[in-house]
C-alpha cells in the first residue's frame, strides 16, 4: 500500500478518539475498507485515528430487550457470540459470511455500518433485524435507527465529529436468517437478503440493490397480509433497480432478490 502521507494516532479512550475526529482525523476501525481505499488513493485522509486501542468499544452484552454490541467488535466475534446467535441470528449469520477469516478477524460491525458499502452484508442484516446505532459526538449521544443511518453510497448521517460507539440489536429477532449470493466461495455479496420474523411481522432487507440497503416492503406486506410466499417473492424487488455490472443485469439481480428472500424466509421460518 502506498497511501499519501498521513498522521496516525491511536486512541486509548472514546474521548481521545472523539477529540481526534473533531480535529479532522478519519476513524480507522478494522481497516478492511478504509485501507484499500487509501491504497487506491480513493481516500487520502491527512490523519487517521485508530480505534483499536479502546477497550470499551468491544464486546456484547444484554441490556433490557436489546443486545449492546461495541462498535469495534469484529465480525468473527459476532459470528461466534452466543447471545447474538440466540437472539439475533440474522446478524450472526451475516457476520459469519463476510469475506475471509482474515477479514472477519479484523473487520468490525461499527466500521461496516459507518463505511456504508452498498454491497455490505452487516447493514442489510441489521436493517432486517431492526437494529440501531448509538452515535456519540461533542453534543453527547444520540440513537439512530439503521434505516435512517445510511443515505447513499458510502454516506451516513454521522457527522465528521461523531463516532458510532455501539450497535443495538433487538432480542426478538431469533427467528431470522441471512442469505447471500456471490460468485466465488469467498466473495462480496452480489445480492444479500436478511429476513426476520418477529411479533410485529416480517422484516426483510437487501444489500447490493442500490445506493444503500433497502427494506423489501412489497415482500413484507404480502406476508404480513397473509399472502403466499410465491406472491411475496413476486413483489420482493418492487421499487428496486440494482445497477447492471459485470455480475449481471438489473433483471438478474431483481430475480436474485426474490430467490434469496425466499431462501432466507424459509430458513428463518424453520428456526
Amino acid at each position: 500500500m502506498i497511501p499519501s502521507t498521513l498522521e496516525y494516532t491511536k486512541a486509548r479512550s472514546i474521548d481521545e478518539a472523539l477529540a481526534a475526529v473533531a480535529a479532522g482525523a478519519r476513524p480507522l476501525a478494522g481497516g478492511m475498507s478504509l485501507l484499500p481505499m487509501m491504497r487506491l488513493r480513493l481516500a487520502s485522509p491527512g490523519a487517521v485515528v485508530d480505534l483499536g486501542g479502546v477497550p470499551e468499544l468491544v464486546g456484547v452484552c444484554e441490556d433490557g430487550d436489546e443486545l449492546a454490541v461495541g462498535a469495534m467488535t469484529t465480525h468473527r466475534a459476532i459470528a461466534n457470540d452466543p447471545l447474538i446467535a440466540r437472539h439475533c441470528h440474522v446478524v450472526a449469520q451475516a457476520a459469519a459470511g463476510v469475506g475471509s477469516m482474515t477479514i472477519r478477524n479484523r473487520g468490525t460491525i461499527g466500521g461496516s455500518l459507518a463505511h456504508a458499502d452498498p454491497h455490505g452484508d452487516l447493514p442489510a442484516a441489521i436493517l432486517a433485524a431492526g437494529g440501531a446505532v448509538i452515535v456519540r459526538g461533542p453534543g453527547g449521544e444520540r440513537r439512530v435507527d439503521v434505516g435512517d443511518l445510511i443515505t447513499s453510497y458510502l454516506t451516513t448521517t454521522i457527522a465528521d465529529d461523531e463516532l458510532i460507539t455501539q450497535v443495538r440489536l433487538p432480542k426478538d429477532a431469533a427467528q431470522s436468517a441471512y442469505a447471500k449470493f456471490h460468485r466465488r466461495a469467498i466473495d462480496w455479496s452480489i445480492i444479500g437478503v436478511g429476513v426476520s420474523i418477529g411479533a410485529d411481522g416480517v422484516r426483510a432487507a437487501a444489500t447490493g440493490v442500490g445506493e444503500r440497503p433497502m427494506r423489501l416492503t412489497g415482500f413484507e406486506s404480502v406476508l404480513d397480509g397473509g399472502g403466499s410466499l410465491e406472491a411475496a417473492i413476486a413483489r420482493a424487488a418492487e421499487g428496486l433497480s440494482p445497477t447492471a455490472d459485470l455480475d449481471g443485469s438489473t433483471e438478474y439481480k431483481q430475480h436474485l432478490v426474490g430467490v434469496l428472500a425466499a431462501r432466507a424466509y424459509a430458513e428463518a421460518s424453520s428456526r
Binding site: F181, R183, L246, D247, G248, S249, Y252, K253, H255
Partner: peptide, 8 residues
Amino acid sequence: MQPGRVWK
C-alpha cells in the same frame, strides 16, 4: 460462465 450469464 458467471451465474448472471448462465441464468440469462
